[in-house]
């Protein structure tokens, strides 16, 4: 167990982030918190991706004199793209939430559902 915690802590962190995020998305009634949960979930995945790129004793992937091992650059590039995508998603989500709030005056999902069925 200790062994797992010391050697695979990155995975544990990623899983915790993802689980927490997913829980927020599903369990929380507040729309903003849902979006935050979604971001957490994504962050967990990013962390997972980035840490897999690590190579024991590797240097940052910028070509330098006298360095043999580099960490894998590809996940960084990919996750950079994914982060951009994530930012855009968050922006769209927030725009929608602003509109929802201006129309319903609440951010609670259950209240909104109630209002929709009442109409």
């Amino acid at each position: 167990m200790i062994d797992l915690l010391t050697t695979k802590y990155n995975y544990i962190a990623a899983i915790l982030l993802m689980a927490g995020g997913l829980y927020m998305v599903i369990g929380d009634r507040n729309l903003v918190k849902k979006v935050i949960g979604m971001n957490l979930f994504q962050t967990g995945i990013f962390l997972f991706f980035i840490t897999t790129a690590f190579v024991e004793g590797g240097e940052p992937p910028v070509i330098q004199e006298g360095v043999e091992t580099y960490v894998s650059p590809l996940p960084h590039v990919l996750i950079l793209t994914a982060i951009v995508v994530g930012v855009s998603l968050t922006a769209v989500a927030l725009t929608l939430i602003i509109r929802i709030y201006s129309e319903y005056g609440t951010l609670r999902e259950d209240v909104i559902t109630e209002m929709e069925t009442d109409d």
């Binding site: 951009v84 930012v87 709030y101 201006s102 129309e103 005056g105």
Partner: peptide, 24 residues
Amino acid sequence: IVASVISGLFFAIARGFEYTEGQQ
């Protein structure tokens, strides 16, 4: 793209929203 989109998002969010009727 990135610079303009981020600034644009910032301005958009800063603008907030307009209240409509039926507000509680």
